[in-house]
Each structure stands twice: as C-alpha cells, then as structure tokens.
Simulated assay, not measured.
Amino acid sequence: MSYQLTIYDALPGSDKDHASLPNARSDAKKQAIQRYLNSGKTEPTICVNKYSPGRRSTQYYRLSYLWRGKKKHIHLRGGSTISELANYRALQLQALIDRGAELAEVLAMATNFNGGLSDRPKLDDH
C-alpha cells in the first residue's frame, strides 16, 4: 500500500491538530462572507399586480418592476380583472416570472400582449 508523505510527517514533534484553524476564526470568516453576499444588489423585482386607477372600483392588471432603482409599471391590456383575456395574460406573465425568466423576456411578453406598444426602457441602455 502506498503512503504519501506530508509536511507534518517531516517535522519532528508536529501535530496535525494544531495546523487547522480554530472554529471561531472560520465562523467569523463565514459571517463576513455572508455579510458581503447580503450587501450585494438583488435581481430586478418583477410582479403582476392589480390596481385601481383614480378612485374607481374597477381593478386592472399591471406589470411592476424595478429599473435602475425606480419602480416602473406597464398596464396590461385586455380589460379589467373580470375579463378572461386579462386573467389569461396575467397568468402567463406570472408563470414566466415564476420560471425565473430574465426581465427582458418578461417585458417582451408584456409588450407583445399590448400590441407592441410600451413605454418600457431599452435594457441595453446604460
């Protein structure tokens, strides 16, 4: 059976247990890494929600998302929330969001639902 020598075998009186980091140090390192990860920017938030324009009792669907730190909204055409078409479009967009699609893909579908009309920003603009 072959045996590989390590540096600890070559040093007289060395102990392998002293070479490992104490748990407190590794815990502090893990906590520092987690703080760094938590401080980073998250993915754009996208959701389909209902809203009532003005003081009307009728509700409509809209797509809400964050773009460059600002909340943007796109009205989804198809009628109020009691309309079959509006409900279908809202469900299709929500399924796309739940699947984890990119913001550009969701906005493209919303623009397609609205007949190609949208005031959404171009995502390649910096």
Rank of each mutant, 00 (worst) to 15 (best):
P12M: 08
T58R: 09
N114M: 01
E105Q: 11
A19Y: 14
A110D: 07
L76N: 09
L103A: 06
A108W: 02
A32F: 04
I97A: 11
L91V: 11
N49Y: 07
T58K: 10
Q31G: 11
N38V: 08
D98P: 07
K70P: 04
R120K: 14
L85T: 13
Q94F: 13
G40T: 08
A24W: 05
K16E: 04
T111I: 02
Y88Q: 11
I74N: 06
Q59V: 02
S52C: 09
H75S: 15
L63E: 10
L66D: 11
N112A: 11
A110F: 04
D124F: 09
L117Q: 15
K41H: 02
R68G: 01
L103S: 08
R68H: 04
Y88V: 08
K41T: 11
I7Q: 13
M1R: 08
A95M: 12
L93E: 05
K41Q: 07
A28T: 00
L123A: 10
A104C: 02
P22H: 15
V48T: 05
G13A: 13
L66S: 08
Y88P: 00
E105T: 10
S39I: 01
N87D: 04
D27E: 12
P53S: 00
N114P: 01
R25P: 00
S26I: 15
L103C: 10
L85H: 06
I97F: 14
D125V: 15
K70M: 12
K72M: 12
A104P: 00
P22T: 15
H126C: 08
G40P: 00
Q94Y: 12
K41R: 10
K50M: 14
A108T: 07
S118Q: 00
R99G: 00
Y8P: 03
W67A: 12
S64R: 15
R99K: 09
G69F: 04
D124M: 09
S57F: 01
L5I: 14
F113R: 00
K72Q: 10
E105I: 03
T81N: 00
S26G: 00
R99Y: 13
L107S: 06
L107D: 01
H73Q: 06
G115Q: 04
S52P: 00
Y36T: 12
R77G: 05
L103K: 08
I46S: 01
M109H: 01
H126I: 10
T111W: 00
G54H: 04
S14Q: 05
L96Q: 05
T42F: 04
L91M: 07
L11A: 07
K30P: 02
L107C: 10
L123S: 09
V48Q: 01
Q31D: 07
E84I: 13
I97K: 11
E105Y: 02
T58I: 09
G79N: 01
R35S: 09
L91K: 12
V106A: 03
R89M: 03
W67D: 14
Q34C: 04
D119Q: 12
N114Q: 04
T45V: 15
A10F: 11
A90W: 01
T42M: 09
D125L: 15
I74P: 03
Y60P: 06
